[in-house]
């Protein structure tokens, strides 16, 4: 029994049972399949997270985001006059996280590629783009750059899904995707 020392003193010489051998083999092979699926997806899949990231001072990141907003703001929304920024397709677009907003609102064109930059000015935040469901962690001091291609038109919410203090549940941003 499992609560007593093994009765057979030299238990390590006992032969294995067939069902056990088969299951260990199947399970091991399945592990390989899952392992190589991740690698395979890097070559053939379309959804892979970028490894491009830089160290950055929050002030510098804020400046860059503001510079982009200044250049490309097309209108403002809500009573807080949040700028809606429509940058050129194919370019670098910035969104910043801070207590408790995603800034600015981005307007992107469907089917176009963008280099999206994300960083936080204070604590950690979670970039959760809904309903398409892309979730990325946003750190202060790190600027992540990923290439995204919106494939549906409409309004998408950017929910903060990393707990960031008492205003966490009010931290929602927006990405608008328009047809060209």
């Amino acid at each position: 029994m499992a609560i007593f020392p093994p009765e057979n003193r030299v238990w390590w010489n006992e032969p294995l049972h067939r069902p056990e051998i088969i299951w260990i083999t199947v399970a091991f092979l399945w592990g390989l399949v899952m392992f190589f699926t991740m690698i395979y997806w890097h070559f053939s899949g379309q959804q892979n997270l970028s490894n491009e990231a830089y160290r950055i001072f929050p002030e510098v990141y804020a400046e860059r985001t503001e510079a982009m907003a200044e250049k490309y703001t097309v209108r403002t929304e809500t009573n807080l006059d949040i700028p809606v920024v429509h940058p050129k397709p194919g370019t670098d677009v910035y969104m910043l996280a801070r207590l408790w907003e995603w800034w600015p609102i981005l307007e992107l064109e469907k089917g176009q590629e963008y280099r999206l930059h994300l960083s936080s000015l204070d604590w950690q935040h979670g970039f959760s783009l809904q309903p398409t469901n892309i979730n990325v962690q946003v750190h202060p001091g790190y600027e992540m750059v990923m290439t995204i291609t919106p494939t549906q038109a409409g309004e998408f919410g950017v929910v903060c899904n990393e707990f960031c203090g008492i205003g966490h549940h009010t931290m929602v941003g927006k990405i608008i995707v328009v047809d060209k």
Binding site: E77, T78, N79, L80, I82, E101, I105, G126, S128, Q130, P131, N133, G157, V159, C160, N161, E162, F163, H168, H169, T170, M171, V172, G173, K174
Partner: peptide, 23 residues
Amino acid sequence: TLGVSRRHWDMTFTDAAIGFEYP
């Protein structure tokens, strides 16, 4: 799977400046 955030007090986002609705 439907995208709802963990550690989140209000999935209706009532107090948020910009709203969003989960399905």
